[in-house]
Amino acid sequence: MQQLTPARIRSSFINASRSETAKLNLPKNFDSLDWDSLDFLGWRDAKMPLRGYLVLPGPGGPVAILLRAPEGGAKKKRAVLCELCRDIHSKDDVLLWVARRAGQSGRNGNTVGTLICADFGCCRNVRVEPPVNEINPDPGAVVSRQIEGLVARTAQFVGRIQGR
């Protein structure tokens, strides 16, 4: 992912008001992010922990969405799989993140939700190489497929928010 400025991130939201984007808090490690290892930038707002943000590259520039986590955090009754990274080894919590749709549909109260890692660690999760075995003789190829899947599923989710 290409490095972004705070102003560029704030101007790329498709489902948030100017006041909401003005109030967002960037990740604490924003100045030291390893942009080359990110397929998207995702984080929880440190001052508003029920808010999350997702920024991904798009054909016309970055696209950002505002997400909301459920009240009360994760009430785990069973293990669930993140719909973006589909990592089966991670011990991270997975939450149902909900986003208003873009445009008039979102202003009418319509939302879209999906299961995403609570800490948005998907880019890290897909880069963990599996052990070499008969099913996965080339761990690098597995990681490449996992990254491609993450990028495709993230774009599909954002497409649903945009009404595509």
Rank of each mutant, 00 (worst) to 15 (best):
D31S: 14
L38E: 11
L66E: 12
D87C: 13
P131C: 10
K76S: 09
P6N: 08
I9V: 15
L33E: 08
K23E: 14
G72H: 07
G149D: 04
A16H: 08
K77W: 05
N125D: 14
M48C: 03
L84E: 02
R107Y: 02
L50I: 05
C85S: 08
S37Q: 14
M48R: 13
A64H: 06
S11D: 15
L56C: 15
C122P: 10
T111R: 14
E83I: 00
D87L: 01
I161T: 05
C85D: 10
N125S: 13
I116E: 07
L150P: 01
E71N: 08
G73S: 05
L33I: 15
L96I: 07
S11I: 00
R18Y: 00
E71R: 10
L115P: 02
S37C: 04
P59A: 14
V126T: 13
G103V: 02
C122A: 13
I147S: 02
G106V: 12
P130M: 11
S32T: 15
L50K: 14
L24I: 13
T111K: 13
Q2V: 11
A7N: 12
S144R: 15
A46Y: 00
V63P: 03
L26D: 04
A79W: 02
N15K: 08
D92R: 15
F157C: 09
G73L: 04
D87W: 02
L41T: 13
N15F: 03
A16N: 08
G103H: 02
I135Q: 12
Q146T: 03
P62M: 04
N29K: 12
L67C: 09
P70L: 08
V158Y: 02
W43R: 10
G58W: 02
L115D: 12
R51Y: 11
V80L: 12
G159D: 11
G42R: 05
L115G: 02
A152Q: 12
P49D: 04
L41G: 09
L38Y: 02
T21R: 05
S90H: 05
I14C: 11
Q146P: 00
L96P: 01
V94R: 09
S105H: 10
P59G: 11
Q156Y: 00
V143D: 00
R124A: 13
F120M: 11
V142F: 10
Q162T: 00
L54F: 07
R44S: 15
N108Y: 09
N125G: 01
V143F: 02
P137R: 12
C122Q: 12
E148R: 10
V112Q: 09
G58T: 12
I116F: 06
L26Y: 01
A102N: 09
N125C: 15
G58P: 12
A74N: 13
A102K: 10
L150N: 03
D34I: 04
G60R: 11
Q162F: 01
G73W: 02
D34T: 07
R68M: 10
V98I: 14
D31P: 05
P59W: 00
S19G: 05
D138W: 07
D93F: 07
G149A: 08
N110P: 00
K91A: 13
V55P: 04
I147H: 01
L33P: 13
T21I: 03
Y53K: 06
G72P: 07
K23F: 01
K77H: 08
A22F: 01
W97G: 03
R18I: 06
